[in-house]
Simulated assay, not measured.
Amino acid sequence: MGPAFHILLILCTAGALAEVQLEPQMATVLRGANATFNCSVDQQWVVMSWLLNGNVVLTVTKDHGILSNDPRFTALNYSTGTLSIWEINILGVKRTDTGQVTCDVQNIQKVNAQLSIQVSGTVDIPDMNKTATQGDLAYFQCSALGWYPAPTISWTVGGSIADADMYNISTLPAGQDLFNSTSTLGIVASNSIIVRCLAAVPALTTPLTSSAFLTVVARPQQINLTVLIAVTVTVGVVLLLVIVIVIVVCCYCQRKNSTHSRYEEDMRKAQGGRGQGADNLGYATDSHAGAANGRLNDSVMSQPASINGHQIPNAVGVHDVDSPGTLYTQHSGMKKARYATIV
């Protein structure tokens, strides 16, 4: 092998070592945004082709520049004296654009990169204003709908990031490779604050947020149970005592009225029997008694009497002038006499 062969081998080896750079190697872009890739080569080249998922979408030549018919794909030349740099822009990316992007420098090198299209959905807290009693648990629910991939959800409470154990997250497929996520936050109502729900995917530079306001009201004053029981027992005892007093007074008055009625009835009977002897057991008539005995009997008739019957000598009663009210009798044989005890 002569020198010519060695020269050719060196040239071929140099060509094989020529390097094509494609940046970025991985691009994550939101649906509807633009995707940008740069392809650079430090060797002499003739044709540079751009492919998306194996399909040629744009061609650039060293001598004639851009050759393309699809307005979604454009290219810009940032070449320097020693380095050729071409930038490709994919405008308004779609979900179907997800996949492989290739820069193929003809007869030199082919380099691949990955394009990922993500979808930013919506985020919402339905109850934007909530009122809770101080010390109670207040719950907020956040809905993140139509995302790809499933969104990352977080919360802030009063401007501070909430701990992960304060909320939960559940995710379900929603069709067309999209996802719906919901999250519920529970906090102790201590003071009025602003609560925010944040949803994001890697392609979002700033998470989407939804806010709600929590209004905290003071808890009503609670009555001490011991005091309540004491007051209830005291009131009950007082009421019972009043009832007992009323019953005793009523019974006393009823008994007094009954006694008074019986007394009036006895007096009426006693007064009504005068002159008739109906109620006076000491009333008796004696045809042999004198006028004095008749007057005595009349005075005795008006009083209750107990009578004892004895056989005594017949006597005529006379009054002793020295001892008024004393009745002396003269014996004139034995007659049945009645004694009246005056009460």
Rank of each mutant, 00 (worst) to 15 (best):
M166N: 07
L172Y: 13
A200L: 04
S181H: 09
P207W: 02
A218L: 13
V242Y: 09
I161S: 14
S210W: 03
M128F: 08
G175W: 08
N180V: 03
V217A: 14
V238L: 15
P149N: 03
S160F: 00
A138V: 14
S192D: 11
I169P: 02
L185H: 01
N191K: 14
A230I: 11
M166Y: 07
I243N: 06
I194F: 11
A203R: 01
V249T: 08
G175A: 07
G186E: 11
K130T: 13
Q141K: 06
T206Y: 05
A132L: 10
Y148C: 05
S181K: 08
N224C: 07
R219D: 08
A174E: 00
L198M: 11
N191A: 13
V233N: 02
L185E: 01
T156A: 15
P202T: 15
L225R: 09
S190L: 11
L198G: 02
Q134W: 08
I194N: 13
T209Q: 14
T152N: 15
I243K: 04
V157E: 06
A150D: 06
A203V: 03
I153T: 05
A189V: 06
V231R: 14
T206C: 00
P151W: 01
L137H: 10
S170Q: 13
T205G: 09
M128V: 14
Q222E: 07
A162P: 02
V231H: 07
L241A: 10
L240Q: 06
V231W: 07
I229D: 11
V235P: 01
S192Q: 00
V233W: 01
R219Q: 15
F140H: 04
Q222F: 13
I193Q: 12
T226Y: 13
R196L: 10
N191E: 06
N168Q: 11
A174P: 00
S154E: 10
A212V: 10
L137T: 15
F140N: 01
A189N: 08
A150P: 08
Q134P: 03
N224V: 03
I193C: 05
F213P: 01
T206E: 12
S211R: 11
F140R: 04
S170E: 12
S181R: 01
I169E: 12
N191G: 14
I229F: 07
S192G: 05
G186H: 10
Y139K: 15
N224M: 04
L172D: 11
T152A: 09
A174M: 00
L178I: 11
Q134G: 02
T215A: 08
Q134Y: 04
